[in-house]
Amino acid sequence: MRTPLYPVYADRAHFIDFYGWEMPVWFNSIEREHMAVRRNAGVFDISHMKRTYVRGKRVTDYLDYLCGARPSALKKGRLAYTHVLNERGGIIDDGIVFRLTEDEFLFVTNACTTQRMSSWMAEVAARGGFEVELEDRGGREAMIALQGPTSLSVLKDATGLDMASVKKFECVLYGRLLVSRSGYTGEEGVEIVGPSQDVLEVFEGLLGKGVEPCGLGSRDTLRLEMGYPLACVDFNEETNPYEMDAQRFLDFTKKFIGREALENLKPTRLLKGVLTDDRVVLRGGYTVECSPNVRTKLTSGTLSPVLGKGIGLGFFPVSVEAGSRVSVEVRGKKYSATVVRPPFIKK
């Protein structure tokens, strides 16, 4: 599959297959795109993410039951990060829920779980008799993320829209575009959803202002530097929110799927980071030795472009605390590293 923005970059990007999507992995260089986002601004095509419009009279009851967070508490024009759990408390997905009106929400979730979320959202709606309408506009809509310290000024320059007075995790309508102060890079920035042609014009306008086009390669290195976990890579339905130190995103004052299971669960492992002493690329699957009998495997990793050192995420026994010295095996060689509580870089 290709996103509606594919024609813009068809002949200038390197591509990868990302859960069935032909997506740019980099345009010029992952490092260059990463540093552009840390220092100036970069723009990503994130149209592959699943966008579900949810509406109906009982939409808030439905979403409060579906999500760990409490979407009903959101004011119009606000958004929240949330998890969707199964009955066992395992994480089906994470995503951002936007309140558009009193009875309409937008739920943006991961590409890797598109099928699972489609069927789960429908199943939960039917089972609870919520009578909500679930609409996925597919290729008629596109989504981009503009990220980096100069994002707001370059957005104003390219489109006339001034987002400076809009707070983080708030959104506004600008013509047919939904623009939110959000992102997954740790930087200032906005995400823009709208009809494909409108989003395409903004995308081209931003490139015309010198914004760096960025691929999924730098999106991954940027989120890893912040220690943000990635669905289907760092966590899946066998992971519960406690293991990700994500209790703060759960609202136990209401009923939601997975809550009962969580009340009887205690985590035995926690998602933590490792930072190597030397310049080495860490990758998912690498073994970390905490002590002669305690080992774990990284769920993801990379070389931090900012630090010039290896960084990775993995689940550690709760007894392994931040600051512990460990070694990571990289193709037969052991590299010294420290267990850290992400983020790896200060923002």
Binding site: V25, W26, S29, I30, V281, L303
Partner: peptide, 8 residues
């Protein structure tokens, strides 16, 4: 060009 940035 196929590898992308050589980092190590």
């Amino acid at each position: 060009s196929k590898l992308g940035d050589v980092v190590v």
